[in-house]
Each structure stands twice: as structure tokens, then as C-alpha cells.
Design a protein around this nucleic acid. Structure first.
Lengths: 116, 116
DNA sequence: CCGCTATATCGATAAATGTCAATCTAAGGG
DNA sequence: CCCTTAGATTGACATTTATCGATATAGCGG
């Protein structure tokens, strides 16, 4: 499942009704929750933090496994979730995989909350 | 690759760990995740949205059960999670319970993301 | 080619989570 | 008092999730 990430508000919920209720549609709520769920795990928050603070704004898996005190498969799993959520991007250089923040992604995620 | 830094597990949150900054401490990450986890469910997002858009910025449970198409116990459960996370506050007037946003709570939650 | 190293993927499992039905509590109204 | 209504709590159950160990894949150095 979850092949496509539908980002659309399907049921004609107009965006600009002054005084009316924006009342998040079910589809929009699900999409927002999908992003925020990726951010709702302490280890993933630390991963993002380390990547952001890393040299050149990136970090490879080997640099991420140790500070989190997690197994390498688990870290890879969390990174995949963050990539799937559109928060991180992966670039493979040689044997190593470097992860970096998708520009503006954190701000967009935060806007999902303030824009409720 | 990684410069072997001594690994301090758990809760010592210091601002200046030698050999590299710890970015987000384990404790801080857990606290942030606790808040964000409350925001990671589509039905809870819709609850917040409806409450925020409600008349006077509040809504009672009876107004929340129907649009979500959920049972009343389930809605109460979600509301409790939002209250426990410091996002909603509850005020009982007569037989009804009115929920409203805690001022600034959504902005603070969003700052947990942008401030990573 | 062969092994080594870095990462990803798979399978299993224990814990957490969302939901509902049933029950409990509290506040009014006859 | 009893009954009704709004909401919370409890218990059960199915699904999801976080984690690990084992294994697969993919570059690199001999």
C-alpha cells in the first residue's frame, strides 16, 4: 500500500472561506499525520538533529549508529522512514551513504501544525 | 570515517561535550517526541482543527464525535492524549466538557521541529 | 576473483497504539 | 428518588511499530 502519497484535499474543501471553518479534510489529515508520524520518534529526531549539525549538513550511517546506541539495521530503518517522509535525502558516494536534510522540509512540516 | 568519540549513553545533557556536539540529548528528544506523537494521528489533527475553528475557539465532545465518525469513547481518548500533551485544555460547564487550544501550544510544538 | 566493509533488507518478536463495547460517574430534570 | 444525558474509564482485540539477528547487496583493495 501507500504507493502514492496523495497530497490533495480530495473533497472540495475550499481554501479561503473567511469566517468559515477550514476543518481539515480526512485525506489532508492523513497526509499530515504521515509526515508528523515520522517526526514522532525520539531516535528519528536525534537523527535529524545530528544530520543537520553534521559537517556540510550531512552524515553517513556509520556516524549515526554510534551516538544513538542502536543497531545498524535499526538506524537504516529509521533513515528510510525519514526519506520516505520527504525529510531526508540519500546520496551514495562510494561505499558510504550520506544523508542530508531536504531543504525547507522541516519548515513545511512545522507549518502543518501551525496551519491547523 | 568516524572519529571515535566516547559514547555517553543516557541522560547527561550537557551543552558542550568534547569531541563533537551531541545535538539533541536523549531526554530532550524523548520530550519532543512525546508532544509530536500526540500530533501524529489524523483524527487528533482533525480534532485540533475543529476546536480551533469552533465558535469561541472551543468545542464540546458532542460536536467532535460526529464529524470524525468515531465512537464517543475513542474521541474522549484522543482528547485526553491532546490534553496530556499540553495542546488542549478542558473546561467543564454543566454537563458538557468544552475543549480549547492552549495558547501558543501549536507554535511551541512547531518550534520543536524547526529548532532541531 | 576474493574477501572486506558499509548499508540495505528480511523475519521474528515484544511493546505500543487505535478502536469499540460495556460500564461507571456526574449533573440535571421530572 | 429515579431517569436521562454527557462524558470518562475499563477491558479486549487487532494493527502498527521499534528493535534485533541474520542475511543480502554493492563498492573497493588486494
Amino acid at each position: 500500500m501507500t504507493t502514492a502519497l496523495t497530497l490533495k484535499t480530495d473533497t472540495a474543501q475550499l481554501c479561503c472561506e473567511p469566517g468559515g471553518q477550514p476543518a481539515l479534510s480526512s485525506a489532508a489529515a492523513q497526509e499530515s499525520a504521515r509526515i508528523l508520524k515520522a517526526l514522532s520518534d525520539p531516535n528519528r529526531l536525534r537523527l535529524l538533529s545530528i544530520v543537520k549539525a553534521g559537517d556540510g549538513g550531512e552524515a553517513c550511517v556509520c556516524d549515526l549508529t554510534e551516538p544513538l546506541d542502536l543497531g545498524q539495521p535499526t538506524v537504516s530503518h529509521h533513515l528510510k522512514i525519514l526519506v520516505d517522509a520527504g525529510l531526508l535525502e540519500r546520496e551514495k558516494r562510494g561505499t558510504w551513504a550520506y544523508y542530508s536534510l531536504v531543504p525547507g522540509a522541516l519548515e513545511r512540516a512545522a507549518a502543518l501544525i501551525t496551519g491547523l
